[in-house]
Amino acid sequence: MTYYDVHPEPVISAGTNTAATSADWQTWAHQSETALRGAASGAADATVGGAFEDYLSSWNPKLQGIAKQAEAQGVNATSAANVVVGADGQSATLLNQPLQQGSELSSTLSRPITGN
């Protein structure tokens, strides 16, 4: 017999925790930018300082984007788990309608599902 067992709670928790790291990533990006700007301004040679500025200008958007990606991944994981919970509840309701005379299923996706 084939069945699906749904455990959304760990996914929701992981998604929430991942999204919460966004502020830490933002702080890291700011510290990296500050360090590169300091290196650029402290360079004795204008060419070296310019190289640091060029490096910063190419990496700064990527550094800033990491925080946004962490938040998006966490929010998306949490949303996906909530969709599964909602779908499981809806399917249990729909499948229980013909079974009103028998025992009810509390969660359809955690019950055996026979397939062809």
Rank of each mutant, 00 (worst) to 15 (best):
Y4H: 12
D5S: 15
P8I: 01
P10F: 11
S13T: 15
A14M: 12
N17T: 09
A19Y: 05
S22V: 03
A23S: 15
D24R: 06
Q26E: 11
T27I: 05
A29G: 03
H30W: 03
H30L: 08
S32G: 06
E33M: 02
T34L: 12
A35R: 02
L36K: 03
G38V: 07
G38I: 06
A39S: 11
A39F: 13
A39K: 11
G42C: 07
G42T: 01
A43Q: 08
A43R: 05
D45W: 01
A46E: 14
A46G: 05
T47F: 09
V48K: 10
G49F: 11
G50E: 07
G50N: 14
A51H: 06
A51M: 04
A51W: 06
F52I: 04
E53I: 05
D54K: 04
Y55P: 00
S58F: 01
S58C: 02
S58I: 08
W59S: 07
N60M: 07
N60L: 13
P61K: 06
P61I: 02
K62L: 08
L63K: 05
L63I: 07
G65N: 15
I66F: 10
A67N: 01
A67R: 02
K68Q: 10
Q69F: 10
Q69E: 13
E71C: 01
E71F: 06
E71A: 15
E71T: 08
A72G: 07
A72N: 14
Q73R: 06
Q73P: 00
V75Y: 01
N76F: 03
A77H: 00
T78Y: 00
T78V: 01
T78L: 00
S79E: 13
N82I: 00
V84S: 06
V85H: 02
D88S: 14
G89D: 04
G89T: 08
G89S: 08
S91K: 09
A92R: 11
A92S: 15
T93N: 12
T93A: 12
N96R: 05
P98K: 05
Q100I: 08
Q101T: 14
